[in-house]
């Protein structure tokens, strides 16, 4: 066992550093809320636009805000802007 050979029981191995590979986005761990909220926002804004419903438009604004709050930092800002639009 390599640790046996060196006297100081310092476990650190500077040469064995493995770089961090960010997990692929499809992983099950990320929660779905930002994407759902984004989609919901889009739908609300569409129907708000078409049927001139005021509460629909407001719901769209809320949804896009929520999706912004829960968004992962990796998401690009373009999508945020489009959802706010």
């Amino acid at each position: 066992m390599s640790s046996g050979t060196n006297i100081s029981n310092d476990p650190r191995r500077p040469n064995k550093v493995v770089r961090y590979k960010p997990p692929q986005p499809g992983g099950p761990s990320d929660d779905p809320t930002p994407d759902y909220m984004n989609l919901l926002g889009m739908i609300f804004s569409m129907c708000g636009l078409m049927m001139k419903l005021k509460w629909c438009a407001w719901a769209a604004v809320y949804c896009s805000f929520i999706s912004f709050a829960n968004s992962r930092t990796s998401e690009d800002t373009k999508q945020m802007l489009s959802s706010f639009m």
């Binding site: 191995r13 064995k16 550093v17 493995v18 709050a69 968004s71 992962r72």
Partner: peptide, 28 residues
Amino acid sequence: VQGGTLMKESENVYALWCSGRSCVEGML
């Protein structure tokens, strides 16, 4: 490689990757 960065995955998830230890590839 330079350490000391606590990665911010999202507003409520933070991640830290440590590596370079005997019999361990890495710890997330």
